[in-house]
Simulated scan of single mutants.
Amino acid sequence: MKLYIKYMVSLRCKMIVKEALEKLGLHDTALDLGLVEILEEITPEQRQRLKETLGRSGLELLDDKKSILIDKIKTVIIEMIHYSEELPTVNYSDYISEKLDYDYTYLSNIFSEVKGITIQHFIIMHKIEKVKELLLYDEMNLSEISYKLHYSSVSHLSNQFKKITGLSPSFFKKLRQKRTANLEDL
């Protein structure tokens, strides 16, 4: 049986889910971001207890089909941007559609209806979060980050960064360096 869990985006979340299942006497066969497969059928009482346990950790057991599909879309995007070494070379729409085996227009319409933003905007927001992370690590320059995240140019990346954060990438990096220097003075 498959269970879908919202906000399950890290190894820590997986450990919380695994522990909650074990307490209920349930055994997982697969545990992935946003999804867990269990051997047994879950009783309504077990479902309710699992829902409450997960809720205390900020996780949510999903019930309706739209929420499950939205969570699958978000998980594919988060894995694609934050956890894979290379972004796909195909269009993101083709990638998402292929991964979920749904028509992209259908996915896009459902996502926009439920979340109030487009899939493309969600992707951009996560790419900018990844840019921030890479800037803070200070291991890559802006050109390398731009190339890694498949931006057409450094200028395009900078424009999107400023549009989302209100800051230029270089100013963002300087703020971080200034904050670190101030903390060292304490």
Results as ranks from 00 to 15, higher is better:
1 M>D: 09
2 K>Q: 15
2 K>F: 15
6 K>H: 00
6 K>N: 01
7 Y>N: 15
8 M>F: 10
10 S>W: 10
11 L>K: 12
12 R>F: 08
12 R>P: 00
12 R>Y: 09
12 R>D: 09
13 C>M: 02
16 I>K: 06
16 I>D: 05
16 I>W: 04
18 K>S: 13
18 K>M: 09
22 E>W: 02
23 K>Q: 05
24 L>R: 12
24 L>Q: 13
25 G>T: 08
26 L>Y: 02
27 H>F: 02
30 A>E: 12
30 A>I: 06
30 A>Y: 09
31 L>W: 10
31 L>S: 05
34 G>C: 03
35 L>E: 11
37 E>A: 03
39 L>Q: 11
43 T>W: 06
44 P>D: 11
44 P>L: 10
46 Q>H: 11
46 Q>W: 09
48 Q>T: 07
50 L>H: 11
51 K>E: 14
54 L>I: 11
59 L>D: 02
62 L>Y: 03
63 D>P: 00
63 D>W: 07
64 D>W: 00
65 K>R: 04
66 K>T: 11
68 I>Y: 02
68 I>A: 01
68 I>L: 00
69 L>Q: 07
69 L>T: 10
70 I>H: 01
71 D>S: 15
72 K>S: 08
75 T>V: 06
76 V>F: 09
77 I>V: 13
78 I>A: 15
85 E>N: 14
86 E>C: 04
88 P>W: 08
91 N>I: 02
92 Y>M: 10
92 Y>T: 08
96 I>H: 05
98 E>L: 12
100 L>F: 11
102 Y>P: 04
103 D>W: 10
108 S>Y: 14
109 N>W: 09
109 N>K: 14
110 I>H: 07
113 E>N: 03
114 V>S: 08
114 V>C: 08
117 I>E: 14
118 T>W: 05
120 Q>N: 13
121 H>P: 02
121 H>Q: 15
124 I>Q: 05
125 M>E: 12
127 K>E: 06
131 V>I: 13
131 V>D: 07
132 K>D: 06
134 L>E: 11
135 L>Q: 05
135 L>V: 10
136 L>D: 15
138 D>N: 13
142 L>E: 10
142 L>N: 06
143 S>G: 13
145 I>K: 07
145 I>P: 02
146 S>Q: 06
147 Y>E: 14
147 Y>C: 00
148 K>C: 11
148 K>R: 15
149 L>V: 08
149 L>M: 05
150 H>N: 15
151 Y>L: 03
152 S>G: 08
153 S>H: 01
153 S>G: 01
155 S>M: 12
156 H>D: 13
158 S>P: 00
158 S>R: 06
158 S>D: 03
159 N>P: 02
164 I>M: 00
165 T>F: 12
166 G>K: 03
166 G>T: 08
168 S>R: 11
169 P>V: 07
170 S>D: 14
170 S>C: 04
171 F>V: 10
172 F>S: 11
180 T>Y: 14
182 N>P: 00
182 N>S: 12
183 L>R: 14
184 E>T: 07
184 E>K: 09
185 D>Q: 10
186 L>T: 11
